[in-house]
Write a protein that binds this DNA or RNA. Structure first.
Lengths: 150, 150
DNA sequence: ATATATGTGGATATCGTTATCCAGATATCC
DNA sequence: GGATATCTGGATAACGATATCCACATATAT
């Protein structure tokens, strides 16, 4: 349902959101997110062309988010690498359905709309800041202070 | 988001639901649904192996739904050709996320769950019987009797 | 300027999806 | 049984998604 590339793009941008202020090299991101280095470079290039991330070459270079994590929806990331093709006109190109989709395609489009809505209302900051015992991309157990008492 | 094959499988089964009681040949279905004949044969084969449709060879043969349209959810059709891979374990295989997905993957899985829910609660009968001016796969305008009056 | 670090863009490889085609199997009708 | 209709399964092809690699451009530090 979600392409591998989408998964990679989200991991990379979540990592950047977790490391705001310090440019991250492709290699750093690749290791942290377990994404193939060479392919990640391509994904980051695409995100760069789309204006989601900014890059700097040379020593101390790397990638950063262009906007604050609070201002970047997950949808923005996804559409860069996997456009969500809403069903806006009849896939069969039937004249009778030009202005009004049939129940089948309406249902399918509603599902796509739901996904768009869900992801457009969630930001990278939401993902990074959600209180959870599982921190994204981090394999260390989170300790909830004051949670348990002797 | 939805593969071409999914779209084809849904068109074909909707057509069968609209023609319950009369076996439809691959060619009839292909013409009605505008799906490439040769490829449709493969899709129908898959639906046959999955027990969604039943086939008969020879004259007056063709394909039929195994169950009544009321008893076939759209999800059943979709999973035959495009399994919805829920995110049940951490894609990065992080130990810390084994029992609890991180917020990113939880969010993604929730979207997949929504889609499953939507499509599992809609049957072929729902699609075919929904009152609409657009009849699935039919290019003729539906006339709503008694709708307008001089 | 030179050495080093790092992103960019192009060429290429692999694989699954989409698609076509045809020989063979099987059912019906006469 | 022969003619016809129809599905089945295998071979094959085109294409996009995934992935790798490398020469090149460009930035920093000294």
């Amino acid at each position: 349902m979600f392409s591998q590339t989408t998964e990679y793009a989200l991991r990379a941008t979540v990592w950047l959101a977790q490391n705001t202020g310090t440019p991250q090299t492709t290699q750093q991101i690749a290791e942290a997110t377990k994404v193939p280095l060479g392919y990640l470079a391509k994904v980051l290039q695409a995100l760069g062309r789309a204006g989601v991330v900014r890059s700097a070459r040379g020593l101390h270079g790397g990638f950063e988010l262009v906007k604050a994590p609070e201002m970047v929806s997950i949808l923005e990331i996804i559409v860069v690498v996997e456009p969500i093709r809403r069903i806006l006109s009849c896939p069969l190109d039937l004249n009778a359905h030009r202005l009004k989709l049939c129940p089948l395609h309406k249902k399918m489009d509603q599902a796509l709309a739901m996904i768009e809505e869900t992801f457009s209302s969630t930001t990278l900051a939401d993902i990074v800041n959600t209180p959870s015992s599982s921190k994204p991309l981090c394999d260390v157990m989170q300790v909830r202070l004051g949670g348990a008492r002797a």
